[in-house]
Amino acid sequence: MAEDVRMETKDLSVYYGKHPGVRGVSLPVHDREITALIGPSGCGKTTFLRALNRMHDLNPIVRVEGQVLLDGEDIYDPGVDPVLIRRRVGMVFQRPTPFPTMNIFENVVAGLRLAGVKDRKQLQQAAERALKMAALWDEVKDRLHQPAVGLSGGQQQRLSIARALAVEPEVLLMDEPTSALDPVSTQAIEDLLTRLKENVTIVIVTHNMQQAARVSDRTAFFLDGELIEFGRTEQVFTNPKDPRTEAYITGRFG
């Protein structure tokens, strides 16, 4: 395994009942880079993403086969605790998911509270840091104790990002984080991603090819649950090796 590979899947398959949603995918995720997963809807990119922090454990009908290595350790090993994995590998979802019964501050520190952090100052520092990283601090610093559901959609999504960042994950998985947002908020989040990768490894699912081209370092193209092509983003978009990739990025299907 190369020195800078943070996460790697080996022959990963995910089954919904008998139906395979992802088939035999082997993909490296490089440290402190943004890896974009693209492909037409239903191609398995989200299913693949959710396998990277064991979210599929929550659904009894889903079965995962193969390996997902995080720093060389298989997260599906029987001895491995999914709770610890999810703390190291955070996730941001398609729609913002603020906890409606908590205020902005409590939303951001929810993960730290789980870990048992009680020190007020420590929590405040962490919240400020995470909100600054998510470029939300200036907008909410005066109303940290107001309900999180009062924020706009774009703000809510950045709050979700701040919440995921507050626990200082090594890897951040993002499942179409801008698909429910307006162009201005999308722009804000894209800017944010480029700055975030100094600290965090990011895997982002997007249905928007321009977005993948703009923000990612490497791109993986999925089709029908299989990984068709993976490489540096410039290469995948300017000189795809597989005709199916070319067909997709030139808009001939999907």
Binding site: M55, R86, G90, M91, F99, T101, G111, L114, V167
Partner: peptide, 22 residues
């Protein structure tokens, strides 16, 4: 629920902090 699980919560923590309050 998923959002709380993704922060590294146990099942009970998800219930206690998200499901019941909601």
């Amino acid at each position: 629920r998923e959002a709380m699980y993704a922060l590294g919560a146990t099942r009970w923590e998800v219930i206690r902090r998200v499901v019941i309050p909601y």
